[in-house]
C-alpha cells in the first residue's frame, strides 16, 4: 500500500523544491524524482538527486498543484560490517522556507551493511 503525504502549498508563492539529504551520516544517497498526475498516470521525470546535489526543483505552484511525486532512491552502502545506522530526510521548500520535512516511512531510516537500501517516498502538493 502506497502512502501519500499531502503537503499544502501557497498557490501565489514562489517555485517549490524538494531536497533529499542524509545529514550527519556518512553514507551516500542517489535517486530520481518522478512526477505523476492526480489520477496517478505518469507525467514527467522531475529530476535526479545525489548526496552532493540533493535539491530537485519541482516548479511553480500553478504547475505542480495536485501533482503527486514519487521519490525513488537508495542509500549507497559503504561495506559496513557490522551495519551502521542511516537516516534520509526529505525537505520540501517554497520560497526558501521549509514547508515540510520528513523521514520516509519506507526504508527512510535503519541500518545499512553491504547492500544498498532502496527507499520510496510519495507526496502530493495541494494549494
Amino acid at each position: 500500500m502506497s502512502n501519500i503525504t499531502i503537503i499544502p502549498i501557497n498557490a501565489n508563492g514562489e517555485p517549490i523544491s524538494v531536497t533529499l539529504a542524509i545529514p550527519n551520516f556518512p553514507q551516500s544517497i542517489g535517486g530520481v524524482v518522478w512526477r505523476f498526475n492526480a489520477d496517478k498516470t505518469f507525467d514527467v521525470k522531475a529530476g535526479l538527486f545525489t548526496t552532493t546535489a540533493g535539491e530537485v526543483p519541482l516548479g511553480a505552484p500553478s504547475v505542480v498543484d495536485d501533482k503527486i511525486f514519487l521519490v525513488e532512491g537508495a542509500v549507497i552502502h559503504h561495506n559496513d560490517n557490522p551495519p551502521t545506522p542511516y537516516q534520509v530526510v526529505v525537505t520540501i521548500t517554497q520560497n526558501g522556507k521549509i514547508i515540510h520535512t520528513e523521514v520516509p516511512s519506507e526504508n527512510g531510516s535503519g541500518k545499512i551493511g553491504t547492500d544498498n537500501v532502496p527507499f520510496l517516498y510519495r507526496f502530493q502538493l495541494v494549494s
Binding site: G31, L70, G73, N107, F119, L120
Partner: peptide
C-alpha cells in the same frame, strides 16, 4: 508505475 513497491536503484 505509481504503485511501484521497491526502488530500482
Amino acid at each position: 508505475q505509481f504503485d511501484l513497491e521497491l526502488s530500482r536503484i
